[in-house]
Design a protein around this nucleic acid. Structure first.
Length: 455
RNA sequence: UCCUGAGUAGCUCAGCGGUAGAGCGGGUGGCUGUUAACCACUAGGUCGUAGGUUCGAACCCUACCUCAGGAGCCA
């Protein structure tokens, strides 16, 4: 038995066709003396199907009940549209209301504010904005796999439940079956030790890379930071490649190729969605993607970046000092004004970076890199990992970490250690870059941020 | 968590000391192969909550709640 066709499939027909069935939700209805026009959408495509119901149609009497939001099944003939605006339209023979929709339906034909749409997360997927976003999200997720699969990477699955309480990436959500007053990780607790939701699959990813060569993870990640910004969520999807025999140079090259690949993919495969985002969300989005897809990325060492900032003649709110982290205003200046495009910063001071990053020969810096894009800021953060046991132990000690907590991780350096590198890319941040949507809460269907875990 | 701003009709907002308004959406009628259609009429609001100032508060003051933007942290 054939699958019911989507509207996207109907619109791709190359000839008129009698007796087709279309199903979907009503976006708008317009009445004329001789007929009514219904725009029907089923999520398969940005443009809906125009259904024409002649006044003489046996089901024309249903028209007053066909309000925005109602779900319909329409049988009719797909014909070339005599009017401008669409190639095909469906001349209805019969209509069936699958689910009526009353006047309390909150979505209208007009645009809504993102804040209002967030309050109806279960209905906002029916808007054009979210339909377009969710289709892009799906395609770009596949594109991530294409990118890595073409380059000999293996997709691995690192655990979501983790027992290392210090993966070096922020506050963690505790996971327990204990009742309120019992101790996390006590004897009766499920795992018999404290467990958390993962903040990064990197450490396990290193173990897998030191066997499989090139691997990547792509899955949910959890951070319990009380961050209230347009770029942070408590639950987000992260892509973390980890490569044996890659130094920082190769790591940066891969990261740049990755961003460029995603930009090209968006331009080639999501043209209808991109046009929508360019019209209603961000006029610059297409130009930015084209620039990213074609331009060579700049690379600037941290030390040179400090020089550039000092020479800029700008007064920044936060002082520019070698050894301090770069503030958002500094990163914005570098990406948006100095380079005017994507830029990779590398070789950061040792003191401000985690223990696992590889110490450079100067003794002062580590082989770390951040890839910044205009408008979003950091989209990728990565490093070459410290593969030398003695230096790794030294770095752990300097940061007050207990080496016995990382025994299995240190073991990788004891048994056939190799130079290796990796990075993390925030998938939602990539989507923000690809669509121009400026708030992370609007690129994930059901966003989790501090105080918000509804739906 | 800190700083700033905002909460008025289902939605987007105007009103900023003197009897609550518009557009959209809903209803009714009209017009038109329409394209976020158009025209007329109509229903719809304890002005975030609780106090206070005043003859009188949506408007001024205080506290709280909620939301947004910026910062920190980062992906």
């Amino acid at each position: 038995m054939a699958l019911p066709p989507t509207i996207a499939e109907l619109l791709q027909f190359d000839r008129a066709s009698e007796g087709v069935v279309a199903q979907g939700w009503v976006r708008t209805r317009r009445d004329s003396k001789s007929c009514s026009f219904i725009e029907l959408n089923d999520g398969s495509t940005a443009r809906g199907l125009q259904v024409v119901v002649d006044a003489g149609c046996s089901d024309a009497a249903l028209m007053p009940q066909i309000l925005t939001g109602a779900s319909l099944r329409v049988r009719g003939d797909l014909i070339a549209s005599p009017a401008a605006g669409q190639r095909w339209e469906l001349q209805a023979r019969s209509l069936e209301i699958l689910g009526p929709c009353d006047a309390a339906y909150p979505l209208q034909k007009k645009g809504h504010s993102p804040e209002f749409l967030r309050s109806i997360a279960h209905l906002r997927p029916r808007t054009q904005l979210f339909g377009n976003l969710l289709r892009v999200r799906s395609r770009l997720a596949c594109a991530v796999h294409e990118f890595f699969q073409q380059r000999g990477f293996h997709w691995v699955h690192t655990p979501i439940i983790t027992s290392s309480d210090c993966e070096g990436a922020g506050e963690m959500f505790r996971l327990t079956t204990q009742k309120t007053n019992e101790v996390l990780g006590a004897k009766g607790d499920f795992f018999g030790r404290p467990t958390y939701l993962t903040v990064s699959g990197q450490l396990q990813g290193e173990a897998l890379a030191c066997a499989m060569g090139r691997i990547y993870t792509f899955g949910p990640t959890f951070r319990a930071e009380n961050s209230n910004t347009t770029r942070h969520a408590a639950e987000f999807w992260m892509i973390e490649p980890e490569m044996a025999f890659f130094d920082l140079e190769a790591d940066m090259t891969l990261a740049e190729e990755h961003v460029r690949f995603m930009a090209s993919h968006m331009l080639q495969n999501s043209t209808a969605e991109l046009e929508f985002f360019g019209r209603f969300v961000d006029k610059e989005v297409q130009a930015r993607l084209e620039q990213t897809a074609s331009q060579r990325f700049e690379r600037i060492s941290y030390t040179d970046a400090i020089e550039i900032l000092l020479a800029s003649g700008r007064t920044f709110t936060h002082p520019v000092v070698w050894g301090e982290g770069l503030q958002t205003e500094h990163e914005r200046y570098l990406a948006e004004e100095h380079v005017r495009g994507p830029v990779t910063l590398y070789n950061y001071p040792r003191a401000i970076k985690p223990f696992y990053m590889r110490r450079n020969d100067d003794g002062k810096t580590v082989a770390a890199m951040d890839l910044l894009v205009p408008g979003i800021g950091e989209i990728i953060g990565g490093s070459q990992r410290e593969e030398r046991l003695d230096l790794l132990l030294e770095a752990m000690q300097a940061q007050g970490l207990e080496s016995s907590d990382y025994d299995w991780y240190l073991d990788l350096r004891r048994h056939g250690t190799v130079p290796h590198s990796g990075y993390g890319m925030g998938f939602e941040r990539l989507l923000m870059f690809a669509t121009g949507i400026s708030n992370i809460r609007d690129v994930i269907a059901f966003a989790r941020t501090p105080g918000h875990a509804f739906t």
